[in-house]
């Protein structure tokens, strides 16, 4: 993929590649607390059925995953494991932070043991606020991420110039 990294790929090919990527997101899940139940409802139940969006849960290992969804409370003890497994994922990779705990520490914002937001250890592309968010909110987050991927310039992303993020329901992360 030397062409992609150098940014010399024709635009139409880039667009085709982006469309292909956004509809085959292998999703690596970190269900750490009650948000995991909402995530399970979003991906596992026929009512919400995230697979119709092209999100494929249950990759055999992080090495086969494109998308990391952290749903729940990240503790300081768990944080190194998340970072390590995130680093094992191949580029390009994306992160959705689901729920108040993963976004900023949530109700445990002053705890001695909770990491104040997973974005302290991995770059987050989409924040899904809520305590916990409903499955619809996670689906919205996935759609937002797919929009980001659709309009992405892979060369910029892979140079590490990408600092963009989206928030479900709007707003800014301060």
């Amino acid at each position: 993929m030397g062409l992609v990294e150098s940014g010399k790929m024709p635009k139409s090919i880039t667009k085709l590649l982006n469309i292909s990527r956004k509809y085959s997101l292998w999703m690596y899940q970190w269900g750490l607390a009650c948000c995991a139940l909402e995530m399970a409802a979003a991906i596992g139940s026929p009512r919400y059925d995230a697979m119709r969006l092209g999100v494929i849960p249950f990759p055999a290992s992080p090495r086969q995953a494109d998308l990391l969804i952290v749903s729940g409370t990240v503790t300081d003890k768990m944080a190194p494991a998340i970072l390590r497994l995130y680093e094992q994922m191949p580029d390009p990779k994306y992160v959705i932070s689901m729920g108040s705990c993963a976004n900023c520490g949530g109700p445990y914002w002053d705890s001695y043991s909770v990491t104040k937001g997973v974005d302290q250890i991995v770059p987050v592309d989409v924040y899904v606020p809520g305590c916990p968010p409903r499955p619809e909110a996670l689906l919205e987050g996935i759609v937002l991420l797919q929009e980001m991927i659709h309009n992405e310039d892979p060369a910029e992303r892979w140079k590490g110039n990408d600092g963009e993020y989206a928030v479900v329901g709007g707003g800014e992360i301060s």
Binding site: S111, Y112, K116
Partner: peptide, 11 residues
Amino acid sequence: PLRKDFPLVAR
């Protein structure tokens, strides 16, 4: 951390 005088840094 469960000692009462343990400071919570976030506070």
